[in-house]
Structures are given as structure tokens and as C-alpha cells.
Amino acid sequence: MSLTLAEIKVILNANVITSKFDANIVIERAYSADLMSDVLSFSLTDSLLITGLVDKTVVRTAQVSNIKAIVFARGKVPSKDTVALADEKNIPLMITNYSKYESCGRLYEKGLRNSHDAK
């Protein structure tokens, strides 16, 4: 089961913060972690990343890991620099007020699964 970014935005009641945002992008799988080594090590390409960290390194980790989009949980707002970098690298960013747990649960309920399953 896949979801579009538009659907994910609704499910998570999220705000889009990058100026580049293609609502029709299809997300096939999701990955959740706060340790960037873990994202580098275990996430598969084209995942949605749900994380609690908002610094620039997250965007760079996403770029290296071919992450398609990032959701920041718990309403955490990244710096302008981080948003600018994401725009430059073409990685859409969203903020949700839900916790990471609630975000993962809601997306799972709507049929999204983890990277590992798709392997």
C-alpha cells in the first residue's frame, strides 16, 4: 500500500514547510529513527523518514540515503537554513504535532509499511 504526500499531510495533519512540494509524490514505505547512523544503515531508498531531530544533518542524511520526504514530529521546527537546504536538495519537509509514535501508528493504520517489508 502506498500513500501520496497529499494523503500523508492529511493523515498527520501536517504543515508543509519547504517551498518545493509535489503533493503527488508517491511514498511506498516509511522509516522512523532519530539516529542518523541507523537511517544510513537500514533505511531503503525512497522511504519517508519520520524523525524527532530537525538539524541540517538530517537533510544531508536523507540526501545520502535517498529519502524521499521527511516528517518532523512533535511540532519541532527546523532552522531556516535546514529548510533552505532541503529545498535545494529537493527533499520536501513537513511538521506534525503528533508524536513519532502517533505518526507511525496513523500511517501504518492507513497501510504504509516499513522499508524492510519491501525488501
Binding site: 522509516y31 522512523s32 529513527a33 509514535y101 507511525c104 501508528g105 496513523r106 501504518y108
Partner: peptide, 18 residues
């Protein structure tokens, strides 16, 4: 052996909320 997303999803399905 499952990743966090999968574990959370399954717990959520069992009715465990945040």
C-alpha cells in the same frame, strides 16, 4: 528484528496509543 516503524504500527493496531 523488526524496525521501529513496524513495531509501532503493530502496537497501534493492538490499541496502544501515545
Amino acid at each position: 528484528s523488526l524496525p521501529a516503524f513496524e513495531i509501532v504500527g503493530r502496537l497501534y493496531n493492538l490499541g496502544i496509543r501515545c
